[in-house]
Every structure is written in structure tokens, then in C-alpha cells.
């Protein structure tokens, strides 16, 4: 559904590249996470893929359309949820969705149903300008689903939302993935990426460092650890041991056989720890 080959982009049209010769493919129905800190090149890549930024170099095919050629009808197949909410403050929530719905040439979803889906039921006739930041973000998210997109660009979809609403948004993304919608998710939140993405790409300084599934990354880069708390001569002792080294495995057996175990937890590396390990940079 998305094919990117040797994409580079410079805002100043010189050799200062925000994105440097990146390539990747996204299959139909896949949720692809594009992860990196601020300024890594995530939004630039999404900008080129959605046509908001002019493609300068390389080859980008989205939903069968060559992005370099101006073909506005491709947006009938694409939905974009922006990180910064963008709604008309002098229109009501329903008027906002109804207006955008009329710009598409394909059947669109009912605006009231979409508002209910994102928890804005009862706010249909309220002016969007009176909404909180989180409500505007949800309205922006709802708008991205209007045209039943085949490809869905999601830029920080849960940023600024309370945990309950964030969980609702994540559920909606999962439901769409189950229905075969291809999603390109841009985020610096590794927990969201871990939960939602089939594959993730780590991007830093405009360069993709790796692309893989979260599970493979954990297997490849994570060290499996076990935290054990046990009593020894009436004292509580705590040890963290690796499951992959022979000496630690023997020590685990010795503790289990000879001591009263209080707590024992297995622990695997998070995507964030792996990102730091791979790129040497934190996700700020």
C-alpha cells in the first residue's frame, strides 16, 4: 500500500537533509510505527507521503498513486489525523465533520456516529472553538475516519488525551487494523507503538536505523531478566539475574531450592530501552 524508495527531503533545498535516502514498504492491513524523537524526520516523511510537502527526491507510491504527480482524488482513499488539532472554531463539531464529508467523492460516515465513537456525543452542536485541547484532538481524529480510508496516517493519535479516551482511540485503531486498514503511525510514545504496531521503524537524524516487529526487536536486543526477592537468615534479599547466562541460571535454581521466595518477576526490555540501545539517543 505504501512504497518509499530513496526518499530525501530538504526544507532549504540544499544538502541539509531532514530525511536522508530512506526506503521502506508497508503492506495492506499493516500498522506501521514510525518512531523517533522530535526533529528526527517523522513529520517530514509523513508530510511527503500525504502530499503536504513536495516530494523532491526518490520514489513514493501511496495507495497506488505516485505522490509526485498531483492527483487529489487519491485523498478519497487516505485519512490523516494531525498531531495539532485543526478544526474550524466557528463551526460546531457536527458542522466541521459535515463540511469535510462533502469534499470527498466517496461515501462518508455519519458525523453523529463518528462523534459518538470518539466520546463527543452530546457535543454535536457545540462550537469547536469552545472545546478543550483533548476534545479538538478527538474531533480531528474523527475527521480522519470520515471517508473510510484505506490508508490512515496517524500523527501522535493519543497525545494530550486522558488514559480512558486514549484507550478508546487505541481500540478504534485496532478495530480498523482488524478490518484491513493500513496505518502509518508516527509517535515518540513507545508503549503505544508496542501495543498497536505490527512493525516499527526507528528514525533518527533523518535516517532509518532499523525496521522490525516489536517482538523480534525484543528478542534480538532485549536481555531477559528475573527479579527475585527471597529471605536469607530472616533478611529480605533482592537479586536481578539474566536468564541467558549459565551462571545466573544456576544461581536462580539454587535460590529457588534453598530459600523462601517472596516475589519473582520476569522482565523484558521495553522498546524505549531498545531504541536507546540501537540509536544511542533518548526519545525526547
Amino acid at each position: 500500500m505504501i512504497s518509499v524508495k530513496n526518499l530525501s527531503h530538504s526544507y532549504s533545498n540544499d544538502d541539509k537533509l531532514a530525511v536522508k535516502n530512506i526506503s521502506f514498504e508497508i503492506e495492506k492491513g499493516e500498522t506501521f510505527g514510525f518512531l523517533g524523537p522530535s526533529g528526527a524526520g517523522k513529520s517530514t516523511t509523513q508530510g511527503v507521503l500525504t502530499g503536504l510537502l513536495k516530494q523532491q527526491d526518490g520514489e513514493v507510491i501511496v495507495a497506488g498513486y505516485d505522490v509526485k504527480k498531483v492527483q487529489n482524488e487519491r485523498f478519497n482513499k487516505i485519512g490523516v489525523s494531525f498531531e495539532q488539532s485543526n478544526v474550524y472554531s466557528k463551526l460546531t463539531a457536527k458542522e466541521n465533520l459535515d463540511y469535510y464529508a462533502k469534499l470527498f467523492d466517496v461515501p462518508t460516515r455519519d458525523s453523529v456516529e463518528l462523534l459518538r465513537l470518539v466520546g463527543l456525543d452530546g457535543k454535536e452542536n457545540d462550537m469547536a472553538g469552545e472545546f478543550s485541547k483533548g476534545m479538538k484532538h478527538r474531533l480531528t481524529f474523527a475527521r480522519s475516519m470520515l471517508n473510510n480510508p484505506e490508508i490512515w496516517f496517524l500523527d501522535e493519535p493519543t497525545t494530550g488525551l486522558d488514559p480512558a479516551i486514549a484507550a478508546t482511540i487505541k481500540d478504534i485503531i485496532k478495530e480498523h487494523a482488524a478490518e484491513g486498514v493500513t496505518s502509518f503511525l508516527t509517535t515518540h510514545n513507545m508503549y503505544i507503538a508496542d501495543e498497536l504496531c505490527d512493525r516499527v521503524a526507528f528514525i533518527i537524524d533523518g535516517v532509518i536505523k532499523l525496521i522490525d516487529t516489536p517482538k523480534n526487536l525484543k528478542l534480538q536486543y532485549g536481555q531477559k531478566l528475573i527479579d527475585i526477592e527471597y529471605t536469607d537468615n530472616g533478611k529480605i534479599v533482592k537479586e536481578t539475574l539474566k536468564t541467558v547466562t549459565e551462571a545466573d541460571r544456576r544461581r536462580i535454581g539454587e535460590i529457588v531450592n534453598n530459600h523462601d521466595i517472596q516475589t519473582m518477576h520476569s522482565k523484558e526490555a521495553t522498546l524505549e530501552e531498545i531504541f536507546i540501545q540501537v540509536t544511542g539517543r533518548e526519545l525526547v
Binding site: G51, L52, F75, N76, V80, V87, L103, F104, D105, T140
Partner: peptide, 9 residues
């Protein structure tokens, strides 16, 4: 930007 990602030219 939101209008720019619709079929409206």
C-alpha cells in the same frame, strides 16, 4: 492542511 488532504484542489 486539513483541506489539503481532501480531494478539494
Amino acid at each position: 492542511n486539513a483541506v489539503n488532504v481532501t480531494p478539494a484542489s
